[in-house]
Design a protein around this nucleic acid. Sequence first.
DNA 1: GTCTATAGTTCGATAGAC
DNA 2: GTCTATCGAACTATAGAC
Lengths: 184, 184
Amino acid sequence: MDKRERLVAAAAQVLYEQGVEKTTIADIARTAEVPVGNVYYYFKTKDQLVEAAMEEQARALRAMTDAFETLTTPKARLKALLAGWAEQREQAARFGCPTGSMSAELGKRDDGLNRTAATVMGLLVDWVERQFTLMGRADARELAVSLVASYQGISLLTNVFADPALMAGQLRRLQDWIDALDGG
Amino acid sequence: MDKRERLVAAAAQVLYEQGVEKTTIADIARTAEVPVGNVYYYFKTKDQLVEAAMEEQARALRAMTDAFETLTTPKARLKALLAGWAEQREQAARFGCPTGSMSAELGKRDDGLNRTAATVMGLLVDWVERQFTLMGRADARELAVSLVASYQGISLLTNVFADPALMAGQLRRLQDWIDALDGG
DNA sequence: GTCTATAGTTCGATAGAC
DNA sequence: GTCTATCGAACTATAGAC
């Protein structure tokens, strides 16, 4: 892995775990095992590192949803998404949802980074909406927003109360909700 | 309003609007119209100002739920809560939920401030749980976590997509959900 | 109690040797 | 391309006059 990749991976990890504003260039450089001054050869500003970290999240998100495409029904794909989130509940208890917690900080800005956060979050909502559409639901967009919002909210509560069982319990409710829905 | 109160009010506003880490003591002092150095007569550290801001949120939250106590049924009280959130949708589109967005930052810390965030969020969940219990629901805690998580998640999405209509639409869904529940 | 001035630190970013 | 050294700005916090 070359230095640029190491920097992006370190940025994605540390910005998520510590928060965007709290994290310094030196934190990222240390994690990537790259000398501090060398960072600026690859990224002109800290904001460019934040943007690269969000794009890394977008890639990870696409990789996950792509893997679900092998499943035959949209209902099975949605349930696989929930199962994946359940597996990350320990991490959520410590740091929240990667996309959600970074978006919470970036959403307050009015530079380009809030747009980047909206794009990544939009990828998730759009994919979920597509599954509901395939299920023949006319209210697919509303259902998708509801599902993603529920996950984001329970990620926040799981983090604030530092209790992974909270995530597990609420995801079971969402599984039941999906099961009870009409359509494929 | 004396200087201490002005500082707490300014802290609650600016820390919410800009985020905890991004906000400086000077930002708070300027908003409170108090000279920078004078802040430290009332608060020894920035963290103490953050804690005071969270306690101010707790007071506001208690004032709101106390006002709902005049309503005769728990169902009416929950619907009043949702209606209050709907009125704040423009603010949510700009900065998210006050308690939620500050808790998202504080949840990653391991000093006492994450406990403070958990306490404030706990006040809300506990009050909602009490309403569901009065409705005779055995799963009152789960329902309360679900409702608060939905609100927190939709606050995040409303902020990220800068779209107050998102909040309005999802709160309508929650109103319908409450209406359809068994019990008072 | 109030305020100015500034100490002491840390940060983002750059210059320039290699 | 890589790295050290460091600049200038911004921050938290304190010292001390009034």
